[in-house]
Design a protein around this nucleic acid. Structure first.
Lengths: 106, 106
DNA sequence: TCTTGATACCTCGTATAACTAGGGGTAGGT
DNA sequence: ACCTACCCCTAGTTATACGAGGTATCAAGA
């Protein structure tokens, strides 16, 4: 995948994954990779700062748990996060459609 | 449109527009806006530097003409640009499909 | 004549965000 | 002991879209 391809779309993807059920950072990465058929394998230097950004924007909230001796930070959507997810889904739809239109018609 | 949405996809769009027929910068912007149903209206501070970038990467080539007293810089695809267009079309396809998969399955 | 709007080009600086490259540590299997 | 998978983090780099500003031509209208 080209370097900049993901830019501006990562938030949507993370919100969508968390929207399907709370989970911790590492697991979110795994679920995203799985759900995309391996196409979207985020390096940790992308994943964790993105989650922090979403939390600082109050779209996610997190709490620490410990499972099997390992600390996990579990994220869930806030109400604002649910709204943002819905909005970003729509925006993705129109963006993708616009791109397809260009690719089809020109 | 959100600020970062376009990032990494602009080259594809510009190559696609020029691939449909050589035209000058300003006109490329108009054709893109038209082909996208008004969704993609690029500011000039985005359009012109992007075209220059593509030319410096040898994906576009340009020549100056004058029509009605106005100077125009007309762009066309190079052979490398045609290849890049084909490649980026495929990459867009897999990216879009990956996103859709995530949005559908999670 | 003067102004406005569309056409047509440009550059500089800024902000954003994904990524690279490091760091830390736990648990289980060989 | 070592390796792999798990699990978290940050600092700095880099790419690129955009805002703001500049230049110039031409046609239409006040």
């Amino acid at each position: 995948m080209k370097r900049e391809t993901l830019k501006g779309h990562l938030d949507l993807l993370l919100l969508a994954v968390v929207g399907a059920g709370p989970s911790h950072g590492y697991h979110i990465g795994r679920r995203l990779a799985e759900a995309s058929g391996g196409a979207l394998e985020l390096p940790e230097g992308t994943l964790y700062p993105a989650l922090h950004r979403l939390e600082s924007k109050k779209l996610l909230e997190s709490s620490w748990t410990t499972v099997g001796g390992r600390r996990r930070r579990v994220y869930d959507l806030t109400p604002a996060g649910k709204e943002a997810l819905a909005k970003e889904r729509l925006e993705w739809g129109s963006f993708a459609q616009a791109v397809e239109s260009v690719l089809d018609t020109v």
